[in-house]
Amino acid sequence: MKIIKTLALGLTVAAATQMTHAADTGFDMQTVDPEADRIALQKYFKSRFPESDIADYVNGIYAVDAGSREQWEELEEFPPYEFDVEQGEELFNTAFANGKGYADCFENGGIGIRQNFPYWSKEEGTVKTLEQEINECRVNNGEEPLKWGKGAIAQISAYMAWTSRDKVFDIKIPADDERAKAAYLDGKKFFYAKRGQLNLSCANCHVQGSNIAIRADLPSPQLGHVTHFPVFRSKWGSLGTLHRRYSGCHKDSRSKPLKPQAEEFRNLEYFQSYMSNGLVANGPGSRK
């Protein structure tokens, strides 16, 4: 009985794989079209999971798997990241030795701006992430940079996300700078290319394989991936940044993992965040 049921599911997977067959545009600098990508991705998930609202994808796997949603909603009633947000607020408001603070480094005093990250910096010719600017703020004011993956940087980021809840993601790819488009394309390519000894792309699990069990885990859909970061993961037992998760995923493909804030990861974040345009910021989040 159980076997037959899983067999039916297996067939669904085969059908789903069919749908992802190649488009013939959008894969080089001449043809890449971020807005078409974003719409195509929404369309893909709409057809995979017709019951789920696009807006709900900020809730990750719980947008498409009713079974685990209930448990998660209970968890969110007493969110495991609450302490981190409080700590983050305190850190955010603690002045540096020179009397300045994080509020001096960001637009609008750093409040309600999470949805604008990452962004393309024309001056520096690179993608800038929120965590990167938190550390730059420190260094520019004579403080030591924080470690990227967890701890204080994740807490500060969590507080900044908290003040931005329900703001709509609006990542821009400036038309007047080809390098921005190139960074987006690079991130897209990173997402879809198979790599590592296990020969896995991000898409293997998070597009085709989303909501299909790998042992007892259900991979989340890529749509809405970034909106809830930083995240408190039960598996970690702590709060972590998006790039901590990227390193972990990269390693899971048995690639030698890149370090957080590597250019490839920032470009990946740029691509993924653009895919979440139109969705709201809801970080920090909690996940299994």
């Binding site: 076997i3 067999l7 297996g10 997977v13 299909i212 069990a213 790998i214 007892a216």
Partner: peptide, 11 residues
């Protein structure tokens, strides 16, 4: 126990 179903069952 707790087999996944990304691929077809071994049957």
């Amino acid at each position: 126990n707790l087999a996944g179903n990304q691929g077809p069952p071994t049957i």
